[in-house]
């Protein structure tokens, strides 16, 4: 079958989409001197020297570990607190429910720049600067409301008769919630975890401001290197490529649920 016109256009778009990423990959496989001397479409003399440097130098690879740690912490915290709250919003009417829900949402929209300085001072006062938990907590500002919002959407899709039947059968709320309800919305929990991961992973303004060395994320280490070492483009590109890898892995695992999460439109 001859490919249709729109398939060709789509392939062209995907080509454009991947081109900048390819270009960075290309750079990452070349030395800085090579990059600066000639412009080539593919590495003529591919080298892993940039990657080796990143994997052997603790000041580089610790950045990845730091990012992973606070992202994992943030995802765990967000899900833990958001699950009961989302249940409350989807099942009960209580004093101030609508107002609280709206107020939570405003935080998803809050400009990070506004919170930058107060956060720095708050965590300094608490002695939490340069710890993973500080970044994880800071990211809760937008991830907790997001998690509540997505989970509420999934929970509202579960008929309330299920809860009623379980309560009549003598389940307590916590037991019902853990043994019956969470398994029912596990796709929703997965989608929520994905988005929490995503937004915590891509955010850097807070992560950079609240860390010095011990919890510095890889993204911040990259930008610092730009100014300090006279621009080693190859090294920077290699670090950039490595920041894409965890995201790409996560997408691959959730690809079948992703469309469902987006269908709710709650991102």
């Amino acid at each position: 079958m001859i490919p249709k016109k729109r398939t060709i256009l789509l392939a062209f778009y995907f080509g454009l989409l991947l081109l900048p990423i390819y270009w960075m990959l290309n750079m990452s496989l070349r030395t800085n001197a090579d990059i600066l001397s000639v412009l080539t479409l593919y590495p003529t003399d591919p080298t892993l020297v940039n990657y080796i440097k990143i994997f052997t130098d603790a000041s580089w690879y610790s950045g990845y570990i730091n990012s992973m740690i606070y992202v994992a912490m943030n995802t765990t915290i967000s899900l833990t607190v958001a699950l009961p709250a989302a249940y409350a919003f989807s099942r009960y009417r209580f004093v101030g429910d609508k107002q609280i829900f709206f107020w939570l949402l405003t935080n998803r929209m809050a400009p990070a720049a506004v919170f930058l300085l107060p956060f720095f001072q708050l965590y300094s006062t608490l002695g939490l600067i340069d710890t993973h938990i500080a970044v994880a907590l800071a990211h809760c500002l937008f991830n907790v409301p997001l998690a509540v919002w997505i989970l509420e959407g999934f929970m509202s899709g579960i008929p309330r008769e299920i809860d009623e039947t379980a309560f009549i059968d003598g389940y307590s709320l916590p037991r019902f919630f853990i043994t019956v309800f969470i398994p029912l919305i596990r796709a929703g929990v997965g989608v929520t975890a994905f988005f929490c991961f995503m937004f915590s992973w891509v955010e850097l303004l807070f992560a950079r401001t609240l860390t010095v060395t011990n919890a510095k994320p890889i993204g911040a280490i990259m930008t610092r290197t730009i100014s300090a070492t006279g621009l080693d483009w190859g090294l920077m590109a290699a670090a950039g490529v490595l920041t894409i890898v965890p995201g790409a892995l996560v997408i691959w695992f959730v690809r079948n649920h992703m469309a469902k999460g987006f269908a709710l439109g709650r991102v």
Partner: peptide, 8 residues
């Protein structure tokens, strides 16, 4: 893919 790349 582009959505999961850190913003900087």
């Amino acid at each position: 893919l582009p959505l999961l790349i850190p913003w900087n």
